[in-house]
Amino acid sequence: MEKLLSIIFIYILVDNFVFQRFFGICPFLGVSRKMETAIGMSMAVVFVMTLATLATWLIYTFVLVPFNLSYLQIVTFILVIASLVQLVEIILRKISPTLYQGLGIFLPLITTNCAVMAVVLLAVRQEFSLLESVIFALAASLGFSMALVIMAGIRERQELAKIPAALKGSAVTLITAGILSLAFLGFKGMLTL
């Protein structure tokens, strides 16, 4: 139990995927322009990351390891993620059209979101149990979402600012992310696994 809580705390605040680990920077830069889209993307990422970790953990533990095929993890995992995203898209469209309207446009973006790939790889590499893996994925995706939402708030304000022309857009966003990364360093070493 203590370990699970530690995982949550660490991967949201201490070892944030965006600010300290550089996973998912592309969508972080891409969809943090507006609060609504940031929240939509966050929900999609939380959903897919958790589900993908569940699926890959099962495949890895019960298919790849028994057959000594762990070197196939990259190919398998990316396939699983890609298919999963498609699957979610289809199911969502059928079951909840309103949710699909909200999340749908973000789903294709997730396939190439390296945060998803990173989370499934790290779950395996850190030898987490199934429950730990899922909690880890949840925490990591929540950390990603937090970064995205904070950034969206800041960028909405920056829309109204007189930022030097050369720095407009991604440059100032990166610098902002850098300062955020600095700020979150305050939590450094607070908990270890």
Binding site: Q158, A161, K162, I163, P164, L167, I175, I179, A183
Partner: peptide, 10 residues
């Protein structure tokens, strides 16, 4: 970098 006085976030 943020546009000077009034626009800085931090």
């Amino acid at each position: 970098v943020f546009g000077g006085i009034g626009y800085n976030i931090f």
